[in-house]
Nucleic acid binder design. Structure first.
Lengths: 215, 215
DNA sequence: CCACAACCTGACCATATGGTCAAGAAAAAT
DNA sequence: ATTTTTCTTGACCATATGGTCAGGTTGTGG
């Protein structure tokens, strides 16, 4: 019927089902971990029979791998703002904003990622060794250049990066703890803004940026 | 035979076996998560038959709970240095040192704790609501006092605490990632010192402490 | 309208897992 | 020496889980 113009039904369904399953899987993996998650649980969450999951994703591990890869992409892309920045105040400030936003909007994915790494990165070790290693080296150079240009205090760029990752991810991975300490309620809009501002304030001051071109 | 003087054999064995099992359990739970860990795996790690574990710990969950509670105690005690400090430079500096040390020496426990919280704290929710909440409120007051006294920059104490937790825990929870980015090798003594120094430098500078009574 | 391919799913299976238990070994108490 | 208590463990069980599959349904191309 259609050569190319109108996308066919089957493809639509495939796409739709896959993302539906992935979303459900992300949630279940985040809540229960890989070992604690069951295909049945994911199926129920997605409102599909279990056998259907296995039609789209051959094994639990394949499904999990896809979830992890997806969040990794998002995670890496957050760094785009980093590169297009003029200097440390803008670059690092924007990066914090971006990563905090990911923690807020992709909480489940962040947890899955954290869980994966915590357990020795069994399925994405190669990504860590290649893509992430290169990415990290690149940003370290950028930061080092800023330091050499006297645009920020001389700190260890690598550990600064770790601190950025740690601090921003914390709001996702330990979100439950934060919520509990917030009288059991999730942070509201104002509180998220306060969190972002605090993180930026301390870190930017920590690297010797007072208030120049700060975003 | 013995009334009290010499501790009896049975008690010794009980103590010994329990800690042996707990140590093995901590490792396995850290590596595989609660769901991925199996009693058989823990038994093998401890070099005991599985049925023996069930003699000392009735269920997998009971064993897990004990592991989590143990690390929580260690975690809380790290704050002792915080209280006995004269001011922010010493207090926060020492706290960072203490928590970094925990990350280095109790990596497995830290991961178990992180995992527990990430999955919604199913077994230690009450601790979060009571002990941890009180602890946090107490430290916030201390920090606030320091701010009021003009001994550090006016930052949000709560988010400062979160940052301290996040940054220091990161070196345990994401240790695998850090190791991978360190050419696959664990941080050596000098690198750990560098990490500690970097964290302290950035955070202390971030809260407006240049170099007074810094530890 | 037909043949073909893609999609769906209830029923099923092999395996792994948490947990039990009974029978015995080791130590303590009497 | 004997009774009692604590500890040990191989064998066992009920259940849950990841995964399969055959037969059926739905959409697609001709």
């Amino acid at each position: 019927m259609n050569t190319n113009a109108r996308s066919n039904r089957k493809q639509d369904i495939r796409q739709e089902r896959e993302t539906l399953i992935l979303r459900a899987a992300e949630k279940v993996f985040a809540e229960a971990g890989f070992g604690g998650a069951t295909m049945q649980l994911i199926a129920d969450m997605a409102g599909l029979p279990k056998a259907n999951l296995h039609y789209y994703f051959p094994t639990k591990e394949a499904l999990y791998r896809q979830v992890v890869q997806n969040i990794f992409q998002i995670w890496l892309h957050a760094a785009d703002v980093f590169d297009s920045a003029d200097g440390p105040a803008e670059g690092i400030g924007a990066y914090i904003d971006a990563k905090m936003e990911i923690s807020r909007t992709h909480t489940d994915g962040s947890k899955v990622w954290a869980s994966e790494v915590m357990h020795g990165a069994p399925v994405i070790q190669d990504y860590l060794e290649t893509t992430l290693a290169e990415w990290t080296d690149g940003r370290i150079k950028v930061i080092q250049r800023w330091i050499d240009q006297g645009r920020m205090a001389p700190v260890n760029p690598r550990h600064l990066l770790y601190m950025l990752w740690a601090t921003t991810q914390h709001y996702a991975d330990f979100g439950h703890q934060i919520e509990t300490l917030n009288k059991g309620k999730p942070l509201n809009r104002a509180q998220w803004a306060e969190a972002k501002a605090s993180v930026k304030q301390i870190i930017l001051a920590g690297i010797g940026i007072t208030r120049d071109t700060a975003a």
